[in-house]
Design a protein around this nucleic acid. Structure first.
Lengths: 243, 243
DNA sequence: CGAATCGTTGATTCAACTCAACGCGAGTGG
DNA sequence: CCACTCGCGTTGAGTTGAATCAACGATTCG
């Protein structure tokens, strides 16, 4: 029943909001052969070992990428929100090194790799924008390494809540004070390197301390500044400024 | 006294070995205004918050990148060996989100960002090569998230040893069976999300099991296949194939 | 209504941390 | 040349944060 966040209209529209692109740049993007595709919750967009031919622009819904380790454990390595270009990471590589899976029902626009690469080099402003997007994603990965490697469960969980809040707000998807977070505690654990049980206790502790309110699949941040402080969260690694 | 691995000659030479570049591509690279610079062990190449103007090609020595968290803890987010282009990650971003520090004495070639970007779009083959290098680094970051998030100390430590062995071998720096690893146990801990004490015990256990031999600042892999299995290590995420 | 999935809670265990001490080799300076 | 320091590695004892195991509620859905 939860209201769906409004769909991001187009790749061109989204890039335009963050980068200075001229008419020809935008035309080039709009001329790409994008095909819409929908995925059910938990459906795979891509599996490790696949050789992807498309990169996808997430229009609606949540998607995440993950790796499986030897004992069957799973680590979520990124979470994507509408407006993210999901698969630039695989564009110049042959074989996917991770899985991409829909968290909720999701709609994406698929663009053929060759076309995207051709455009990137025909229109350098577009190329720089896309390259920059991949670098920001890499920066977020580095922050996740630090998060999982050097912060305890409380800090770590708070950090993820802050990050998603900020990224959503910055993408124009709504205020950071309250948002839909349609992840199970199991999935949160897989993102945070914790067990579902411990996520449960950690969320409860954050709630008892008045920092957040969690109901069903949404989070309300009751005290942003204190949560930020607990999380050791800063926005610098998100590189929100104009590219 | 340990023998220094031979220096990588040039950026052009290094890229040529991995990508098909034509004469003009290579000329373009060689015409870049690279200036050599040396760093002492522990010296900073870049600090979080800096606005870097150069990207650097690591000619000789080891370099690592790290982040500091609230309690002063440090997380190393990547380790670089000769042949790596260290700072492509910051090229299109304004402000560095992490620190870069020399592990050993190191020599780098500095190239101005604008020149590198200009070349990337003037010579798409070069641009693709560089972009791809950044994507591979991002892939390694994802593996590190999984390593720190979902593997125990033994697997984690073994994994790092395998990764560095493989990357060195692939860069033509010597066989994976034995190599210099000039990191203190403190630094290894910061890379693995462990304490120095626990790294010590973990290395000892790996050694007692006959998997590795560690002396001073070098590692010998006594049984690659068993170490690989312990580490849950595969090479797929390194994308070693021809770009 | 029953089944399945997800969240909650308690009891117990264990991997990794902390604290502390000591060893050792490489400089360094008297 | 020896004594000293300093950084790093090693080892032991005790603590703790998170995992594990297990059971039970709550909600959704066919």
């Amino acid at each position: 029943m939860a209201a769906r966040v409004f769909a991001i209209r187009s790749l061109a529209g989204h890039l335009k909001a963050r980068y200075s692109l001229d008419r020809d740049d935008l035309d080039g993007i709009e001329r790409l052969n994008g095909t819409a595709r929908s995925f059910e919750p938990n459906q795979y967009l891509l599996r490790e070992g696949d050789r992807p031919k498309y990169c996808s622009f997430l229009v609606d819904g949540f998607v995440y990428r993950h790796k499986i380790v030897a004992d069957g454990g799973r680590q979520i390595v990124s979470i994507h929100i509408p407006g993210d270009i999901i698969d630039l990471q695989n564009m110049l590589l042959q074989e996917a090194d991770h899985n991409i899976q829909a968290l909720t029902a999701a709609t994406v626009l698929l663009f053929p790799h060759e076309e995207v690469v051709a455009l990137a080099f025909a229109r350098p402003a577009v190329g720089k924008a896309m390259w920059r997007e991949t670098l920001i994603e890499a920066s977020i990965s580095r922050e996740w390494i630090a998060n999982v490697g050097r912060r305890d469960a409380r800090e770590r969980t708070a950090h993820l809540i802050c990050e998603l809040a900020m990224r959503r707000e910055s993408a124009g998807l709504g205020p950071r004070e309250a948002y839909e977070l349609p992840m199970t505690q199991e999935q949160l654990g897989d993102a945070l390197g914790l067990t579902a049980v411990h996520v449960n206790r950690t969320l409860k502790a954050l709630q008892d301390d008045g920092l957040i309110t969690r109901s069903k699949r949404s989070v309300a941040v009751n005290d942003w500044e204190r949560l930020r402080a607990v999380a050791d969260f800063t926005t610098n690694y998100l590189h929100l400024g104009q590219g």
